[in-house]
């Protein structure tokens, strides 16, 4: 249903062109949960903002193709994009504390979205807001609609954001680190909620996180991004059980285990991610890679196919 092909997003800055996303391709099937893993600056959020048409920076250059149910979104007039946004494609954000307008009640904010897309009465929109709050397990929804964001805890606000995203029954849900700002016990509640909503609504979900544990729990398929590019993709089992790219491998190794014996030292990835302003020639991960060899000075390509890694060790 969503097919992203050769997406590039660059930003013109005073220091030069920052290539935030380079040649990113992926697709999402109906009802599927696609996970994107990467560290900060890997381009995962920017890719999703491009899908949502939410990159408003006049210095941004977006090329490539984003096809939603056969419809090209890159270059779509903003009025057309607006009709899709919130109704067919909805987004959940990272920080629930700042994602809601502080001066309106949560019922008002949910109803606003419904009224923007559907010809229903105000009462009907408010009633739907109450139903949605009940669906995301907010206690006393009839009373909660009249509350302001600051009166709710972080976990409750994230539920409101999710309810809002679901308000027009979108076919595609885009979630940008929706549990990162929450405590683990609340994160567990939200992940359970996401699983329940997938069963009930059948929306396809693109889920960004840097937490491999969260990915292991919810993803169907995954891709790993590094320095603006996709370095590996495959099913969740493939990526966790037999990672091919040294970066995916290293990412998995650097997480301290929660069970079993503790290693005396954690395995680390030396160095830091490259500066996107002057990305090194060749493989961007090569300077930190334990397996680099002569070939890595060239640019590795990500082969087509459901299971692939952009590494010369894998595709010589």
């Amino acid at each position: 249903m969503l097919k992203v092909t050769g997406l590039n997003v660059s930003f013109r800055t005073e220091q030069g062109l920052v290539r935030a996303v380079e040649n990113v391709s992926f697709d999402v099937a109906e009802g599927e949960l696609m996970g994107i893993v990467g560290e900060s600056g890997s381009g995962k959020t920017v890719s999703l903002l491009a899908v949502m048409g939410l990159i408003t920076d006049p210095n941004a250059i977006i090329t490539g193709s984003i096809a939603y149910r056969g419809r090209e979104l890159v270059g779509l007039p903003s009025k057309e994009m607006r009709k899709l946004r919130g109704r067919e494609i909805a987004m959940i954000f990272q920080d629930p504390m700042t994602a809601l307008t502080p001066v309106y009640t949560i019922g008002w904010q949910i109803a606003e979205q419904i009224l923007a897309h559907e010809k229903v009465s105000k009462q009907a929109a408010w009633q739907r807001a109450i139903d949605l709050l009940a669906e995301v397990n907010i206690p006393n929804p009839g009373e909660a609609v009249h509350r302001y964001p600051h009166q709710l805890s972080g976990g409750m606000r994230q539920r409101v954001v999710i309810a809002m995203a679901l308000s027009c029954n979108p076919a595609l849900l885009v979630a940008d680190e929706p549990t990162t700002a929450l405590d683990v016990t609340v994160q567990a509640q939200i992940l359970d909620l996401v699983a329940k909503l997938r069963r009930n609504h059948g929306s396809a979900i693109v889920f960004i996180t840097h937490d491999m544990g969260v990915m292991a729990e919810i993803a169907d398929r995954m891709m790993v991004m590094y320095a603006g590019r996709v370095v590996e993709r495959g099913s969740k089992e493939e990526l966790f059980l037999s990672p091919r790219h040294p970066y995916t491998q290293a990412l998995l190794d650097s997480i301290p285990p929660l069970v079993g014996a503790r290693p005396r030292r954690l395995r680390t990835i030396p160095g830091t991610p490259p500066n996107l302003l002057n990305r090194p020639a060749g493989c961007a991960f090569a300077p930190r890679c334990p397996q680099r060899f002569e070939k890595c000075s060239a640019d590795p390509q990500l082969p087509a196919g459901a299971r692939a890694a952009a590494c010369f060790r894998v595709n010589p």
Binding site: M52, L54, T56, R82, K83, L84, R85, G86, R87, A90, M91, F93, D95, T98, A99, L100, T101, P102, V103, Y104, E112, Q113, A116, H117, V161, M164, A165
Partner: peptide, 26 residues
């Protein structure tokens, strides 16, 4: 620049509404 403006855009609201009801109001 606030996050809730991004939310408002993601909801599919018009720019006028975002400006008047969300940005101006705050």
């Amino acid at each position: 620049q606030e996050d809730y403006i991004r939310t408002a855009r993601a909801k599919g609201l018009s720019e006028t509404r975002i400006l008047l009801r969300h940005a101006l109001r705050t």
